[in-house]
Structures are given as structure tokens and as C-alpha cells.
Amino acid sequence: MLESFADVNPLDSWGGKSFFLNPGHQLKRGTYFATLKEKDGDNDRHRLVRTGQLPNP
């Protein structure tokens, strides 16, 4: 992603990498637009769904 889009600013956070769009690097970080998860955290709802631990609503 970084090779294709020069105005993207990555930031490591919370078990993943967040990406911010920052044309011309005018802002401190830019505008958030995506996160790629590298691992599940203890409070990730998706992890509970995948393991069948999520209670019925």
C-alpha cells in the first residue's frame, strides 16, 4: 500500500497497523481510513464470533 500511495502515513497500534491519508504531509497524522489487524486482542468481538464464545443477543 505504501508503495502505491505516497500520501499514506502508517502507524502501529493495538495489534495492527492503522493508515492515515495525509496529502502533502500537511497534518500531524492525516485522516484515518483503514486498519490491518496483525493479531486479535483480548477485547476483539471478531475473535469471540470465530471461536463461538459470543453470547446470543
Rank of each mutant, 00 (worst) to 15 (best):
M1D: 10
M1C: 06
M1W: 00
L2P: 14
L2C: 10
L2M: 07
E3W: 03
E3C: 01
E3H: 07
E3A: 09
S4P: 08
S4R: 06
S4H: 12
F5L: 11
F5R: 14
F5C: 07
F5K: 15
F5G: 06
A6H: 13
D7K: 00
D7P: 06
D7E: 08
N9V: 06
P10R: 01
P10W: 00
P10M: 00
L11N: 04
L11G: 02
L11M: 08
L11W: 02
D12Y: 04
D12F: 01
D12E: 07
D12V: 01
D12R: 06
S13P: 09
S13E: 03
W14F: 13
W14L: 13
W14D: 13
G16A: 07
G16V: 07
K17E: 12
K17F: 03
S18K: 09
S18R: 10
S18D: 15
F19E: 10
F19P: 11
L21F: 15
L21T: 04
N22A: 02
N22V: 02
N22E: 05
P23S: 01
P23D: 02
P23A: 00
G24C: 05
H25Y: 06
H25V: 03
H25D: 15
Q26W: 08
Q26S: 14
Q26N: 15
L27K: 15
L27S: 15
L27P: 10
R29L: 11
R29N: 14
G30Q: 05
T31E: 10
T31M: 09
T31S: 12
T31G: 11
Y32V: 05
A34I: 00
T35H: 06
T35Q: 08
K37S: 15
K37E: 13
K37R: 08
E38P: 04
K39T: 04
K39E: 08
K39N: 05
D40R: 01
D40Q: 06
D40F: 08
D40W: 11
G41F: 02
G41P: 11
G41H: 04
D42L: 06
D42T: 12
N43H: 12
N43I: 06
D44W: 00
D44C: 02
D44Q: 05
D44M: 02
R45P: 02
R45Q: 05
H46S: 09
R47P: 02
L48Y: 02
V49F: 15
V49T: 13
R50G: 01
R50K: 13
R50D: 14
R50M: 12
R50V: 11
T51M: 14
G52A: 13
G52W: 03
Q53A: 12
Q53F: 04
Q53C: 05
Q53R: 09
Q53W: 06
L54G: 09
P55V: 02
P55N: 11
P55K: 03
N56Y: 04
N56A: 08
N56F: 05
P57M: 01
P57R: 09
